[in-house]
Nucleic acid binder design. Sequence first.
DNA 1: TTGAAAGCGCTAACAT
DNA 2: ATGTTAGCGCTTTCAA
Lengths: 343, 343
Amino acid sequence: MNVTVKSLAEACGVSRGTVDRVLHNRGAVKPEVALKVKTLARELGYVPNRAGRALASYKEPYKIGALLPSIGNAFFDGIAEGMKSANDEFADLGIKVVMKNLQGYNPKEHLKAIDELLNQGCKALCLATINTEEIREKIDYCTEKGVHVILVNTDVDGAHRLCYVGSDYIKAGKTSAGLLSLIAQVKELNILIVTGSKLMLGHNQRILGFESELETLNTHYNIVATVECNDSDILAQQLTYKMLVEHPEINCVYVAGAGVQGVGAALIANGDLSILAVAFDDIYTTRELVKAGIIKFVVCQQPHRQGYHAIKRAYQALSGLIDKNSSTDFYTDTLIKISSNLD
Amino acid sequence: MNVTVKSLAEACGVSRGTVDRVLHNRGAVKPEVALKVKTLARELGYVPNRAGRALASYKEPYKIGALLPSIGNAFFDGIAEGMKSANDEFADLGIKVVMKNLQGYNPKEHLKAIDELLNQGCKALCLATINTEEIREKIDYCTEKGVHVILVNTDVDGAHRLCYVGSDYIKAGKTSAGLLSLIAQVKELNILIVTGSKLMLGHNQRILGFESELETLNTHYNIVATVECNDSDILAQQLTYKMLVEHPEINCVYVAGAGVQGVGAALIANGDLSILAVAFDDIYTTRELVKAGIIKFVVCQQPHRQGYHAIKRAYQALSGLIDKNSSTDFYTDTLIKISSNLD
DNA sequence: TTGAAAGCGCTAACAT
DNA sequence: ATGTTAGCGCTTTCAA
């Protein structure tokens, strides 16, 4: 038989109410009693029973706030869907997900959105946000207040968060380089890198991993140029086309961020199908380019699973099943997709 | 507010006990009353609350039986681990997984093992078993008795089961062909197929998918020979080596089943590193061959996730959250692994 | 500062 | 054949 609040209370010689107060740090308990309960809980290996908790908190589900810069960015659809299915699955265990959708990466708006989620009474947050000082401070503040913070898809340097759930961007870059080396039939790869933004940690890491693996594998390569398209398809198309014309030696295009559709358009306009173009993530427009053979393969990061898992982690934290110590980062698989295994 | 047993009982004008009897088909209810409860339950959209159920059945967890032919086959380790983590995760929701491990594919032993699980009182079964008539009948019998059957990793033709959880073998074969076509630098692929057994549905489907995709892609190919190694490394090594010597034109080896290590040994002995060898699943020995460049890539099927999901489905069925109609087959992702993304 | 008790949804034993 | 009730583990409110 497992350790329950009741048995723990008996073991401590106090009432269940007192045990509950101690376990949830809501004060009004003599320090020495609190200590006794805490140590005994650890020793006896008390683990809260989810069913009991869910039932008791049924009238007032715990709110989990989710923030996604999803407006106008199809990639986040998958994450949002994953969050939704987790919400449905865990609803009867006493949680409720509150979604907040933003457009783009304006720090002020992100801060405001987080505050709104807090004001709505969210006891846990799943955030896909930006890597700035103010945001980091806000996250630390939440953690201090006892609000569990899970960072989804993009991490924030040095923030005190429960865990990160998302892609391993370095590994994704390496994988891309590995497969490129396998399929390349040229003496030397003359590479054009099209990145989203040099301020985006993930994009930089994809480039880092890419180059490091090319070196590990002794693949002969040469970065002809690196251009920044701000995740805009139009800009991506213009820049790519310009570079292809100016540098006819380019035989490989590496798209590290969004703007894939724009790059595809430039490649089609340019007309040289032997150029090895590779990219990330399988949103609809990218899939079409892979099917058409314009892009040889994409490396993907399971957005649905990221969303699902972020909410699951939040739920587990709220149920007392995990804490800072027992919750490691969760990296989704690095998936290679070619036309034969798209969806 | 959701519809509960209590509110449903009120709506029907009967007691909670009667509603419970109807929902669990344990008789002693007037047919007309039963009908009323059933229709009203559907109309009002009654969904059982897991927390309540878990709590009520806490003393006597529902048993889920799992059967794996895992002895001496490292591939099944991943599935077993997945089952174990699902067991841990759902334990406090009122289930308990009973594992049964067998060696090989002896129908008599499989039938006996299933009977033992039934005798131990399992209310749901997760089976990785064989595609024979007797087994199919046994599965149908279980289903008739109200025991939920989930087939894991390999399906059984025409069996009345709740669902299948596992790989899409056809797609795996296609994916293998697709990537092979991408990396091949020869005019024509002269292929040696090494399969596990022609009696194994999955192996056959991998070959079917493989050939069909090669044709779709207009890849020039020629099947030099197909040999059967009975999933034995020793046999695989002998047969492969013999074929490589007899047919020096072979420039590609397609390993559809187990015995990968044996094929690797033959390739090493043969010494021609330009031969494109591809295989399935990333057990330890296979991983080493990929890292060494002997095997160019493997196509994998997420065994951990299969085990986890099979148990989860069983739990959902036992909780009344899914039934035959609402439970579709679950296909795991078709993962391409090269040396750069082998975890 | 602490204890006692009610109640969440469901099941099963018991009563009618 | 049907209704009633206790109790699973936990939280929270009220009482002391």
